[in-house]
């Protein structure tokens, strides 16, 4: 069985929110839409989004890391949100492991959202059904699209390509390779939910400079005016 997922590279994510609004844009008019906004032009606007980018500060000045952290449904392999659903509206697709909600079955009881430790399900306050990232199921399975575009909207949008997409059960996929080679990890492993989405950690490129890189015969200063001759006595004058 394949398990489609996203792998998010925190090493290059700059927190631009492109994935947030491209997701909203694709999904509000698509299979999962609409995604309503409440008070869109008034105080405290709020709406349904499948993907959010958050920012965290790690450490203390001046040793602070600012981490931009995108988060959508992780399409867990053991999704606690699915078995709790009383109606069967929440389900995990057997063919590709995508966790979905059937909005025609959902009664809006919110129980699945309680059962998700990651806070990625959002009740659409207008339709009153539970919504969440569909992994753009209606794009990735759309055979009328060219292969290169059969990817989630957020993945196509992301300017830093911080969002890799692929089958994490296929060891040869780009996603699996990234997890393997770049230290991919899962969120809150303590709950055994086995999120399919993984995150890639920050990496640092450092430089070391050795003394012999600074003291060299080809120093261009040596081409400049010859050193002034020593004035007065020299060793030459006194040594025998």
């Amino acid at each position: 069985m394949s398990q489609l997922a996203l792998v998010i590279d925190l090493n290059v994510c700059v927190g631009c929110h492109a994935c947030v609004t491209s997701c909203k844009e694709w999904n509000t008019s698509g299979w999962a839409g609409s995604l309503a906004d409440q008070h869109p032009y008034d105080a405290d606007p709020t709406g349904t989004f499948f993907n959010r980018v958050q920012s965290f500060e790690v450490g203390q000045y001046p040793n602070t890391e600012t981490v931009h952290f995108p988060k959508s449904c992780l399409h867990c392999e053991e999704p606690p949100c699915v078995p709790v659903c009383p109606t069967g509206a929440s389900y995990k697709r057997p063919d590709n492991g995508v966790v979905l909600v059937d909005y025609d079955k959902c009664i809006g009881c919110k129980y699945c959202s309680w059962a998700c430790p990651y806070g990625v399900r959002e009740l659409d306050e207008m339709q009153k059904v539970m919504k969440k990232c569909t992994l753009c199921i209606d794009r990735i399975t759309d055979e009328t699209l060219p292969e290169a575009e059969r990817k989630p909207a957020c993945v196509l949008a992301c300017p830093t390509s911080a969002r890799l997409y692929g089958d994490v059960h296929d060891p040869d996929s780009e996603a699996s390779e990234a997890i393997r080679e770049r230290g991919g990890y899962q969120l809150m492993p303590e709950w055994g939910t086995k999120p399919a989405n993984h995150y890639l950690p920050r990496r640092k490129t450092r430089m070391q400079i050795f003394d012999d890189e600074l003291e060299r015969v080809d120093n261009p200063l040596k081409k400049e005016a010859p050193l002034p001759a020593a004035k007065g006595e020299t060793l030459d004058d006194v040594a025998y």
Binding site: C16, A18, V20, T21, S22, K24, E25, L156, A157, P159
Partner: peptide
Amino acid sequence: QGVICAKGAS
């Protein structure tokens, strides 16, 4: 090259 930003997608 195919990418878009938060504003562009809005």
